Amino acid sequence: MDWVKIVYSVILLACGILIFVAASSQKGDERRKFIKSKAQSYAFIVVMGMLILDVAQSVYLTIQGNTSYNGNWISPIMFLTVISIIYLVTLLIYRKKYGD
């Protein structure tokens, strides 16, 4: 296995563990749900933006006649890593903003 994939897998695993630890804090139910929903909505917006950019790039390259384009914009492991980090950062920001 390529060492880059191993590094990204470790980063993804670490981000997932941090997300679960950060999300399981003992705050009020409504406040905790509000904070998690805000972070999830921001991460969802980023996912949609990245996917729209990928589709726009493929349409543009198809119109330009680039037949060598294979549609691999970003690897799935990298995509999940970026989304996990974005979710973790926004969760921590909203916890600090709306939490203690």
Rank of each mutant, 00 (worst) to 15 (best):
A43E: 04
V82E: 11
V59C: 03
Y98R: 03
I74V: 11
M1T: 12
I45N: 11
M1V: 15
V4F: 09
D54Q: 13
N72F: 00
V59A: 02
T81I: 08
I77H: 15
V89M: 05
R31Y: 07
V46N: 12
V21A: 13
F79M: 15
V59Q: 04
F44K: 00
K38N: 08
I63E: 08
V46H: 09
P76Y: 10
I85V: 07
Y8K: 04
V82P: 07
V89G: 02
V47P: 03
K97H: 05
I74P: 02
G16F: 00
S84W: 01
M1C: 14
Q57S: 11
A14G: 12
I85R: 03
K97P: 05
M50Q: 11
F79C: 12
L12M: 01
T81M: 10
S68H: 03
Y60D: 03
L51C: 15
R95A: 06
I83Q: 03
N70R: 01
S24Q: 06
T90S: 15
M1L: 13
S24N: 10
I11L: 10
I52H: 02
V46K: 11
I63T: 08
W3D: 12
I52F: 10
L91M: 10
V47T: 06
R32K: 10
S41D: 15
E30P: 03
V46C: 07
R95Y: 07
T90I: 02
V7Q: 01
V89D: 04
F20H: 14
G16E: 03
K27R: 12
A39R: 00
K38M: 11
